[in-house]
């Protein structure tokens, strides 16, 4: 029994020597069957993932891409997004249905904001960056507004932003026509995707302009959180 075991061990050693021997290795290569990697299962996984991602992206009625100029406020509200006319207010632009209708200007103590100020704002909005007290104060004093040239009669007192109002009127008309063909009532809903630092005045102006274009149900997009 012990002899046969020893014999087997010796054969194994011989095989190992042959494997590392050049001639032996070539022989082994010729004898081995050709192994082909089967990627069909991987293809199936990839196809399912692709379909899932495409469906998820296209079915999102708002499809918000957050950036340094568009950070949503946080809330625990649970109302789901619905198909509606979207108005996006970033720190730089006022956008209706993916086309910019007005620029948003920014002031700090009477001076126009610079790119450094926007960078500071983006940096200090993340608590982990530990901004100094004066940096936080400067970032918080940035005031965003729409220039009076966009407003009715070019007056700062006015709340009606004319390019926004015109574009919304056009979209409302289109939506009304579509709804009439489909036999659905016009709901007058607008989703306002607004950056968290936009001041109340500008929000009131946007809401007023939308109200003048027969939109009366305002829904503000927020980032849903579990704590308030």
């Amino acid at each position: 029994m012990a002899d046969s075991q020893e014999q087997m061990d010796l054969e194994n050693v011989d095989h190992a020597i042959n494997y590392f021997d050049k001639k032996g290795r070539i022989k082994v290569k010729h004898d081995a069957p050709e192994v082909v990697l089967n990627i069909n299962s991987l293809m199936d996984i990839m196809t399912i993932m692709l379909v899932f991602l495409l469906v998820s992206i296209t079915s999102d009625p708002l499809s918000i891409q957050m950036s340094d100029t568009l950070v949503l406020a946080q809330s625990t509200v649970e109302l789901k997004p619905k198909d509606s006319i979207p108005i996006t207010v970033t720190k730089k632009h006022l956008i209706v249905d993916k086309s910019a209708v007005a620029n948003i200007d920014c002031k700090i103590g009477g001076q126009m904001c610079t790119q450094d100020d926007f960078d500071l704002k983006a940096r200090c909005s993340k608590p982990e960056n530990n901004c100094a007290a004066d940096e936080i104060k400067r970032a918080n004093s940035m005031l965003f507004y729409v220039d009076k040239s966009y407003k009715k009669d070019g007056s700062d007192r006015e709340f009606l932003i004319e390019p926004l109002h015109k574009e919304l009127e056009r979209l409302v008309k289109t939506q009304k026509d579509e709804n009439m063909k489909l036999g659905r009532p016009f709901e007058g809903i607008t989703s306002i995707i607004v950056d968290k630092d936009i001041p109340f005045r500008l929000i009131a102006e946007i809401v007023h302009s939308a109200g003048m274009a027969e939109l009366h149900d305002f829904r503000f997009a927020i980032m849903k959180m579990t704590t308030r």
């Binding site: 918000i64 789901k80 997004p81």
Partner: peptide, 13 residues
């Protein structure tokens, strides 16, 4: 977007 978006309803000013 992995962030969940919800809506806050508000009436006109």
């Amino acid at each position: 977007s992995f962030i969940e978006i919800a809506l806050q309803q508000v009436a006109a000013p």
